[in-house]
Amino acid sequence: MLSDTSRPVIEATLPVVGENIGEIAKRFYSHMFAEKPELLDGLFNRGNQAEGRQQQALAGSVAAFATFLVNKPGVLPDHLLARISHKHVSLGLRPEQYKIVHDHLMWAIGDVLGDAVTPEVGAAWDEVYWLMANALINQERAMYTAADLTPESVWSTWRVTEKIQETTDVVTFVVEPLTAGRMKPALPGQYVSLKALMPDGVHQPRQYSLTRADDGERRQFSVKRVHGRPTPDGEVSNLLHASVNVNDEVVLSAPFGEVVLTDTDRPVVFASAGIGITPMAGMISHLVQSAATRPVTLLHADKSEQTFALRDQVRADLAKLPDASLTTWFSQPAGQESANQFSGFMDLAAIELPADADYYLCGPLGFMQAIRSALIARGVPAQDIQYEVFGPDLWLAAPQ
């Protein structure tokens, strides 16, 4: 918790820091990469940098953490910290790199706020940073230890054994490890980081959900090609689509991610849109592999039947479960509506939801916010709803 000295300072300065935290984050990254350009090689996603998502996520996370310290002293925002630490470990982040972030972040705070950052104010925000950093360092150290990994050994090389064209813009890769030995099993819903060597010689990481349960020998993930946006956003997905083929090698991390399927007998409802189907496909595959008997409901929204990635795999897996159903919404439907296929956007009013169910959401942020609000309005407890955000989590990082 914050010290008695720092708490009133943070409480007094949180509004002005909060108003300026976006500019602070922007200058922080610019200053840090100017002095440490090597951090862009394999650690930071320059696509997120180009679009400002990483800056927004950092700004929101720091502000949310400080707000939590002020409003709930002695309690840490575990969900926020878990999401960040899983991403960090999947990238092989090292504890000593937190000092680099600290130095440049504190510089940015002073650069933006100027004389308002007195020694007292600087010391208080320094304390906030290290409370958050040390909490993350401790979580990440425990995760490395539990997985019997180090930041360096997180990565391994895999060979592509299959490349499947799911839709015009989605490709599935099936890979097997080059080195013998038991691979770290993935939990249903987790992702791996992929580190790709770009034409300019810089490695770029991206995270991809595992779309099929591990069989002990192979892994499977699907990649949606990002296009129509300024580079470097989409550079990795386009490289994978165009240049990575069967027998080529890819570098992947061990699997991580805190949004995983709970092992219960409760009904489970998956609600996804677009490429958000990927973690759902992995969870449903796991249910088949484990011969689960719990009721399963998949609700999916997409542009059309043809853009519904992994549709054949998902339908085949649902057919293997004793109590499973699929309902779809297509914004450009090819045929008439039916009991399980609708036109337009996902509307839960048309669906009878099971009682006492676990819910998992994945898709665009606006989609998940709307579906979560609809579920809450129907009496679903907030603790029964989990969601997966692709890229920096701008929802969880938003300070309340």
Rank of each mutant, 00 (worst) to 15 (best):
Phe367Lys: 11
Asn245Val: 06
Gly60Met: 09
Ser331Tyr: 02
Gln341Val: 11
Gln55His: 09
Ile24Cys: 03
His300Phe: 08
Asp4Arg: 11
Ile351Met: 12
Glu11Leu: 07
Asp103Gly: 15
Ile284Leu: 08
Glu140Val: 10
Ala34Tyr: 02
Trp395Met: 12
Ser290Ala: 14
Asp317Ala: 09
Glu166Met: 06
Thr278Arg: 04
Arg229Gln: 15
Thr211Glu: 02
Asp169Cys: 01
Val9Cys: 12
His104Pro: 02
Gln165Trp: 02
Asp317Gln: 13
Asn134Cys: 00
Arg159Gly: 02
His31Met: 02
Pro188Asp: 05
Gly216Asp: 11
Arg141Ser: 08
Ala273Gln: 12
Gly114Met: 10
His31Val: 00
Val112Ser: 08
Leu69Ala: 12
Gln204Tyr: 01
Trp158Ile: 04
Ala339Phe: 00
Arg294Gly: 08
Ile164Thr: 14
Arg294Thr: 12
Ser237Cys: 06
Arg94Gln: 15
Thr150Gln: 10
Thr179Gln: 13
Ser61Met: 15
Glu258Pro: 01
Ala349Gly: 12
Leu178Gln: 12
Ser373Leu: 09
Leu178Gly: 03
Gly363Thr: 04
Leu365Ser: 13
Pro73Phe: 10
Gly122Leu: 01
Val236Arg: 06
Leu76Gly: 04
Ser61Cys: 12
Val160Ile: 13
Asp393Pro: 09
Ile351His: 05
Glu337Tyr: 02
Gln220Arg: 13
Val389Leu: 11
Lys36Leu: 06
Thr150Asn: 08
Asp233Ala: 15
Ala180Leu: 12
Leu299Asn: 09
Gly274Met: 02
Gln139Val: 00
Glu258Arg: 03
Ala271Trp: 01
Phe173Trp: 07
Leu252Phe: 05
Cys362Gln: 11
Leu76Ile: 12
Gln220Ala: 14
Met143Lys: 04
Ala135Cys: 05
Ala50Asp: 05
His286Pro: 00
Ala301Arg: 06
Phe33Ala: 10
Ala397Glu: 09
Glu19Ser: 13
Val268Lys: 07
Asp214Ala: 13
Ser209Tyr: 03
Pro279Met: 05
Phe173His: 06
Thr145Asn: 02
Asp169Met: 06
Gly22His: 13
Leu375Cys: 01
Ala63Arg: 03
Phe33Gly: 08
Gln165Phe: 02
Ala397Lys: 00
Thr297Leu: 15
Asp4Ser: 14
Ser325Met: 07
Gln56Phe: 01
Leu365Ile: 14
Ala186Trp: 05
Thr161Gly: 04
Leu91Gln: 03
Thr150Gly: 08
Thr264Asp: 14
Leu58Glu: 05
Glu305Trp: 06
Val171Asp: 12
Arg218Asn: 07
Ala334Ile: 04
Gly189Asn: 09
Ala213Ile: 01
Leu252Trp: 01
Ala66Met: 04
Leu14Asn: 05
Ile275Ser: 15
Ala301Cys: 07
Pro151His: 05
Leu353Phe: 07
Gln49Thr: 06
Val251Gly: 00
Ser272Glu: 03
Glu235Cys: 06
Ile21Ala: 14
Tyr98Ser: 02
Arg219Gln: 14
Ile284Gly: 08
Ala64Val: 01
Val223Ile: 07
Gly114Pro: 10
Arg27Cys: 00
Pro119Glu: 09
Gln207Glu: 13
Ala57Gly: 06
Met183Phe: 00
Leu178Trp: 01
